[in-house]
């Protein structure tokens, strides 16, 4: 479980996060939604420590991440898997080496065991015989799946997905959603998904947080959105044709 309390972040004069508090549950797909520029991506980057917060706390299973030093944060980060919007696969490494990277860095597995784990992760995301291919030679959907395979290689406790289905066709998008949902439930991961995609939200969202102009505007279950009475959230849904 991840709990954030009163997160504030400004860039110069511009306040991007204004006291956001929320909790993200274990074994659930927690969605963060909001318009472009609302602060979703900054919130996610603050939560994983890529951007330092101005104030507030981020607790990973009751460990305050903000107050930890760099080395202690690294230990928490080893429990985090992240799927980036642009996948962020290493260009210079092939698919196998991309997935093996965290295993080689942080485990004492033998070469054969690393390859076994890589193949297991690839199979888990329905990819096979792509080990030798480089990211530049695979499709966007395959890159996303390789990104998921890399993210789950170390059996993470927390999975962050930034716009997991942006730029994908509806079928591949559905496939990625299903995969994230299955992995979340199968490994009991705390999954946080940043998205604009209301279709994904209504299919797999367990817990929804709506960010509006840097503030948490609404939090609840997807079933309650339509009856929320929150004008901005309803407008956001309406604009998404839901």
């Amino acid at each position: 479980m991840i709990q954030i309390e009163n997160l504030y972040k400004s860039f110069g004069e511009k306040a991007v996060l204004k006291g956001v508090s929320a909790s993200f549950n274990k074994g659930k797909c927690n969605f963060v939604i909001g318009a472009s520029g609302s602060g979703k991506s900054v919130l996610m980057k603050c939560m994983v420590g890529l951007i330092p917060v101005d104030s507030g706390s981020i607790a990973y299973d009751h460990t305050d991440f903000v107050s930890l030093n760099y080395e202690e944060k690294k230990e928490i980060r080893k429990k985090i898997g992240m799927l980036f919007q642009g996948t962020a696969l290493f260009d210079s490494l092939n698919v196998e080496d991309n997935i093996a990277f965290p295993l080689r860095m942080f485990t004492s597995l033998s070469s054969a065991e690393v390859i076994d784990r890589v193949n297991f992760c690839l199979k888990r995301v329905n990819l096979e015989k792509v080990n030798a291919l480089y990211p530049s030679s695979i499709s966007g959907g395959m890159k996303k799946r390789v990104g998921i395979a890399r993210a789950i290689a170390l059996n993470p406790e927390y999975l962050f997905c930034d716009e997991p289905n942006s730029g994908l066709d509806p079928i591949t998008s559905r496939l990625i959603d299903d995969l994230i949902q299955e992995i979340t439930e199968e490994y009991n991961i705390t999954t946080i998904i940043n998205t604009h995609d209301m279709k994904s939200l209504f299919e797999m969202g367990d817990h929804i947080i709506f960010i509006y102009k840097g503030e948490k505007w609404w939090e609840g279950r997807k079933e309650d959105i339509r009856d929320s009475g929150n004008a901005e959230l309803l407008q956001f849904m309406k604009a998404s044709q839901f």
Partner: peptide
């Protein structure tokens, strides 16, 4: 620079790599 703008550096950091 390319690794930085394509978030590959962020990916390293999140894995816990300096």
């Amino acid at each position: 620079g390319t690794m930085k703008v394509t978030e590959q550096v962020d990916a390293l950091e999140i894995m816990g790599v300096n």
